[in-house]
Structures are given as C-alpha cells and as structure tokens.
Amino acid sequence: MTAGKPIITMTDVTKVYTVGGEEVRALDGASLVIREGEFVSILGPSGSGKSTLMNIIGCLDVADSGEYILDGQSIEQYSEEELARIRNKKIGFVFQNFNLLSRMSALSNVELPLIYQRVHLGERRERAARALERVGLKDRSNHKPTELSGGQQQRVAIARALATDPAILLADEPTGNLDSKTGEDILALFRELHDAGDTIVLITHNEEIARQAQRRIHIMDGRVSEVES
C-alpha cells in the first residue's frame, strides 16, 4: 500500500478524569499515527478508553498532555468555538444511534454541516445531493429519518459526514444498532468509501467488525497497541 501523509499523529496523549474523587486515566500515554487513505479500526472493550480516544480524535475534547496533530494542525487548548470550526471542517462523525435530526428531511440533515460552513444554498444543495448519491440514497432525499429504515438512516448519517469532504470519517460503533445483514451493508459501504480514497477510523468492541479494516489498533486501559494482522 502507499503510505500517504499522516492525518492523525498522537504522541503520548494522556487524559485523566476524576470520578468520585478518584483519578481515572482514560488515556495513558497513547501514541498512534493514521495516514491519509487508511481504513483503521480501533478495537477495545467498554471502559478501555475507546470513547475518550474518539472524543479527542474528534476534537470534542482536548487532551490533558501530549501532542495531537490533525491534518497538520496541532489541537491544543482551543476555545470551544474554534474546536467547533475544526470539527466542522475536518471530522465527519458517524454515530451508533445515527443522531439525525428527526424534524428535517434527509437532504436537510446532510446540508446541516455545510450550513455551519456558510456554504450558500445552491452549492450546498448540490454537495448534499452528491453525498446522498454516494451512499445510494438519492431517491430518499425528501424522506424524514422516521420514514427510513435503520440502515438507510445510517447511510444518511454517513452522507452527512461526507458532505464536507472531511479529513477523516470517524465512525463510533456504526453497526451497533443494526441487524447483521444491514451492518454488513454499512461496512461494505465503508470499504467502498475507503477504495475511493477516504480516510476512515472505525471504533468498535467487536473483533469481527474490526477485522474489516485494513489495520487494527487495540486499546486497553488507556494504552494503545497495534494488532498485527
């Protein structure tokens, strides 16, 4: 495979939470590199620090110590407003429970991140439609999430993540709420997107699903290690 430029570089990242007066090291000197065009899965049981790692990669949270460089930009103690802007431009989230806004049509949901980028209407519509087309839901544009099946909702969520052309697609247990057949389809879609050149980080506790990725990273008690395939 061709090694692209690094999209994510984490060096010795530590995050400590205080729960009930007790310090919990959610991340303990985690280091990892994810390059452009890679399909990486992060595998770990619950309580392993997986969510914390995802929050930091996704710029929803910042590390206590260590260095995190996302797409050439060092994420330090930014203000919330700046973190929001970085999330908006560089991260495409895909959640376990889809997290679509139920009031809005599929197209409007996909448009949402572009609205926050202040892309004007014509271009926004076009890019949202293109993203929906990529996930195979062009004909469902005007359906509300409640009128779509779980698999279709997750496809809309993926389209929303793709709409801004983010540096990485960050998927947190994307098949967790789906039956195995639909889950397969979603994973196939991820592979398709990977083949098209998108960088994908898939977070899961399921070994089976993690194996779909080209590279696996294991996380346990806040420590990160590469799994040899």
């Binding site: 919330e80 929001a84 908006n88 991140p113 926050y116």
Partner: peptide
C-alpha cells in the same frame, strides 16, 4: 439537548 449535541458535533459553534 440531543439536537444541540448533534449540531455541536458536526460543527455548530456556541454563537450559532
């Protein structure tokens, strides 16, 4: 609250 969380995750700032 959930909606606010989603909006913030996909890039809505405080001001928005």
């Amino acid at each position: 609250t959930k909606e606010i969380g989603i909006r913030k995750a996909i890039g809505a700032g405080k001001k928005s």
